[in-house]
Simulated assay, not measured.
Amino acid sequence: MDSRRRSFLATAGSVVTGVLAGCPGFLSPSTGPDDRNNTEPELEGAGVRIPDSVESTYPQYQYDAANSGAVPGVSGPTGAIASLFEFGDGGFAPGRRMGSPSLRDGRLYLTEGRVDGSDRETFVYGVDAIDGTRQWATMYRGTNAAGPTAVADGTVLATVGDELVGLDPATGTEQWSFERSVQPGITVDGDTTYVVGRRSGRPTLYALSVGDGSLDWETTVNADTVPVTPAVGEDTVYTGGNALQAFDVATGETRWSADYGVTAPATVTSERVVVGSGTTVRVFDPADGTEQWNDDVETYGNLESPAITNPLAVTDGTVYAVADRGLTALSLTGSRRRYAVEMGINGTPVVADGYL
């Protein structure tokens, strides 16, 4: 058994303990000092309604396989924001960090990486989306990865170190693992997941079955380092590094390649493929890779080598790109700049109900 494998697992109502490398331990689903979650009981009295249920879903980073960053039918907060609960302290404790969560059926799924001296651990959590109660936790030793998760029918996907794992969403039990080197960044389209990594030193795109982790196909990507996280539109998957490349989703065969360096994952619409290329937004025809237009984003001198590295958000009419701690909004149909604003942080834009 791999020494990084689960050393203990907790589910709501039961605790299973085990031993790896001579180090026993357990996790309890009940609230306690190590749960690090805090529900705010006075919020309703302060005029904030605590929801009875969470019906919406956020199945993966940037919402969908196209990396659109646009969430339909959901309204985000527009006034003062109150915390319903806090889970974890990755943003405040040295050596701990939390990954971007996914959401389905009222439960959040997320990772936490921990470093304590020479010890490194990654936890994958299932958390109640209403009150932050931990439903289960699965621990892996020897890594402190904290990448985004994805959730599909019957499977939670997470990268643990350089390995992709599939877990049961109800219990956190590991269902399968893909033991080739992959990077954080998981794209799910139907019953297939796409990840990138390096095999024998070659940058590689993998297509796997969500259900059992079996490999459908793999192909080499033109990149000096690890390719950007894949995006999927129609019957094509897009990734790249030294160039933007389009591959057939069924076979992995190359459909076209555009010789522009890619620094951020693509975002795909029915008529356009939008990517970050250094400090430039480039837009391509998905049919043949012809560049439709490009425009530079605003920079502010905050970083020595600014670049668009996070996925862009794309709505029906606007492209939102973040670089050098600033946000630039461009018209999707041409290179007309709508506005630019310095924010002081580099984040990943998401749009819901007209708000960014």
Rank of each mutant, 00 (worst) to 15 (best):
E234S: 07
P24F: 08
T143H: 09
N310I: 00
M98H: 01
V127D: 09
T267N: 05
S100E: 05
V124C: 06
G126S: 14
P169K: 09
A323I: 12
W136T: 06
G166H: 06
E179Q: 10
T204V: 07
M98I: 04
S118Y: 12
D296A: 14
A66L: 04
T155P: 01
W217F: 12
P349K: 07
T348V: 06
Y109C: 07
D153A: 12
G45F: 08
A145T: 12
V127S: 11
L9R: 15
A80S: 12
V124K: 09
L43A: 08
V188H: 00
G278S: 12
S14H: 11
Y61F: 07
E42H: 12
S270F: 07
F284N: 06
T236E: 01
D235R: 05
R5V: 15
N242G: 10
V16T: 09
L330Y: 14
G317L: 08
D316K: 12
R6Y: 11
T318Q: 10
R180W: 10
D295P: 00
D162C: 04
T251Q: 04
V188T: 00
V249Q: 00
G334M: 07
T269Q: 00
Y125P: 00
T315H: 04
R336C: 09
G211C: 01
L103Y: 08
R6V: 15
N222S: 05
V160D: 02
